[in-house]
């Protein structure tokens, strides 16, 4: 699928809590066939403090409506500016970028693990898996109740398990301590979230011989493999997160 640079129209901005929101975008041309795990390079406003684009995962896609969503956590000036966008505003994107999560083999038991804003690419992945006949379990971790974001959507694609660090919802603790990991057996885990969480899940998967793919969120300038800023140390040397990733099999990472 060819990459494109395009002005898209904001057709929705839903604030989930104090620091997360979902932008829905639509364009004049037909949206591309996204692959789960892909992302967009979002132009903020070109002001001195938001000079570079921001890499943001594709959260959900509605081909019927010719629209897609990106889930964003406010982390700095750029995302703060994006949070104020309203219907009709124009946003310039370079997309779709990056590789994708691989499709499981038949009869594999699949688990999606997401933490915080890292759950963003897992919704579209889940829908994709469901459309291909899989019924994944979904394990989501948050700091507390207030951080829980639109998890209702995930119930439509599989069994949802929740952990919060303070126990305000679901099991208390981290995703790696959730009882579902001991109660059920998985062949494949897809994971996106904070670095420490992904590393813990990677270690768990390696230990249990489970295929595990993680989606990395490295600092990026170009998003198309030109600047070589977003590298990750792999068994094949330094690779660009933007074109060789963002999805990597953990066996390829030097974690």
């Amino acid at each position: 699928m060819a990459k494109r640079i395009e002005d898209l129209k904001v057709i929705g901005n839903k604030h989930l809590n104090n620091d997360s929101f979902i932008l829905e975008l639509s364009g004049n041309t037909k949206i591309p066939d996204f692959k789960p795990g892909q992302f967009a390079q979002v132009r903020v406003d070109g002001s001195p403090d938001t000079f570079l684009r921001r890499p943001i995962s594709i959260h959900d896609v509605d081909y019927g409506k010719n629209a897609f969503k990106i889930l964003i956590q406010i982390a700095g000036m750029g995302t703060k500016t994006l949070s104020k966008l309203g219907n009709g505003d124009i946003l310039n994107l370079i997309y779709p970028l990056g590789n994708s999560f691989s499709l499981p083999s038949l009869n594999e038991q699949v688990l999606l693990v997401g933490g915080g804003c890292g759950i963003a690419p897992l919704l579209f992945l889940g829908r994709y898996l469901k459309a291909n006949g899989f019924l994944p379990d979904i394990l989501l971790g948050f700091r507390n109740n207030a951080r829980i974001i639109e998890f209702e959507e995930y119930h439509t694609i599989g069994n949802v398990f929740i952990t919060t660090e303070d126990g305000s919802m679901g099991e208390k603790g981290y995703v790696t301590s959730h009882t579902v990991l001991t109660a059920r057996q998985y062949n494949r885990i897809y994971c996106c979230g904070p670095y420490t969480m992904m590393k813990a899940i990677a270690a768990y998967s390696k230990n249990k011989n489970i295929i595990c793919e993680v989606s990395l969120e490295n600092l990026m300038a170009c998003g198309i493999g030109a600047c070589m800023c977003c590298i990750v140390d792999t068994v094949k040397g330094n690779l660009c997160t933007c074109i060789d990733g963002p999805v990597f099999n953990v066996n390829d990472l030097k974690w």
């Binding site: 001195p48 403090d49 000079f51 570079l52 490295n218 600092l219 990026m220 300038a221 600047c227 070589m228 800023c229 977003c230 590298i231 990750v232 140390d233 040397g237 330094n238």
Partner: peptide, 23 residues
């Protein structure tokens, strides 16, 4: 050349710093 370790880039006002190191 493998270049320098991550992080190799930082956004700065109206610009960016890079330390790719000729990968």
């Amino acid at each position: 050349r493998e270049g320098n370790l991550y992080p190799r880039m930082a956004e700065t006002p109206s610009g960016m710093l890079n330390a790719v190191g000729l990968q």
